[in-house]
Amino acid sequence: MKAVIQKRYGGTETLELREVPVPVPRKGEVLVRVRAAGIDRGTVHLMTGLPLVMRLVVGLRGPRQPIPGRDLAGTVEAVGEGVTRFAVGDAVYGTGHGSLAELTRAPQDRLAAKPASLSFEQAAAVPVSALTALQALRNAGRVAPGQRVLVIGASGGVGSYAVQLAKAFGAEVTGVCSTTKVDLVRSLGADHVVDYTRSDLAERAHEYDLVLDIAGNRPVRRLRRLLTPTGTLVIVGGEGGDRWTGGMQRQLGAVALSPFVRHRLAMLFSRENSADLVTLADLADRGAFRPAIDRTFDLDAAAKALHHLEAGHTRGKVVVQVA
């Protein structure tokens, strides 16, 4: 089978398309024939091996998982021992062990039936980013109907879902983005859109019950000024910082400060699970959200897809068509 392989950390020059053996599903896993694979900022971090602290988990000198990518949508090709939730031929979506390949292993507890209303390409854009948005709003943010929610980074992969899901939960949503992406964020259903290149967020002091800062680098003290006296700040990911910890210092500092202030300050590490994938499939089939897909690439252009994402100009999600 064909797969994108990476043996060392670096840029897109480290990726190459090769013929590799077909993987065999282990206990509790299924073998998925990948129809489409989504990529996100996490895929870029795993490619570059930055921040360096992550290499303690994913491999010191090179990635332990040589095939990049996690998001996928496809059909079940075979099932491993103990698999009871899926059968050969089922259309599924979720996360697997290297989705930039024609076939990949995936744990059954990280898969769900593909939303009937979404194509394979659309479904592949959902898992990691939409799970993160859902858990940031519901679990960490405790969003409630009628609240005023600010989404910083509203045009990205996670942000595009956060805007739509916050609206589905009954919130009044303000999205923050750059000039070229204002139309996208407005089309996602945001009640208000702020172009950060033309407006200063500091002018909106004490307005929001919940602020989601997605992959940003604004100081926590500035973000707190946007909150109502008992509002909540959720930091989702983070860019910038040093090579060792990246944006994690800001997140950890916010969590350490939280017990001493009236604001709730939280960070999020999303958890991939089938229950939330089922929830998202139901929301999609009820029309609560639609994936915003920026561009689609073929498998042999996966390096170009990652370069496009790394450049930071994407509007929503980037998808690789495999089959």
Rank of each mutant, 00 (worst) to 15 (best):
L17V: 12
E19L: 11
V20Q: 01
P23S: 09
G28C: 10
A37N: 04
G42E: 01
V44N: 07
L46E: 09
L52I: 13
L60G: 05
L60T: 03
G62P: 09
P63H: 06
E77V: 03
G80N: 05
V83H: 09
R85P: 15
A87N: 06
L100H: 12
L103R: 09
D109V: 01
D109G: 07
P115G: 08
L118M: 06
S119C: 07
A123I: 02
P127W: 05
S129N: 13
A130P: 05
L131P: 01
A133E: 06
L134E: 12
A140V: 08
A144I: 11
P145R: 04
P145M: 12
Q147E: 15
R148I: 07
L150F: 05
V151M: 01
I152G: 10
G153V: 09
S155N: 09
S155V: 11
G157W: 00
V176P: 05
V176Q: 10
C177D: 12
T180H: 06
D191R: 01
V194P: 02
A202S: 14
Y208K: 07
V211L: 00
G216R: 02
R221C: 03
T228Q: 10
T228W: 02
T230C: 05
T232D: 00
T232K: 02
L233D: 00
I235C: 05
G241D: 12
G246N: 04
V255G: 08
A256W: 03
V261P: 09
R264M: 00
A266E: 11
A266W: 01
L268R: 12
R271D: 08
A275V: 07
A281L: 07
F297K: 11
K304F: 00
L306V: 07
Q321M: 11
V322K: 13
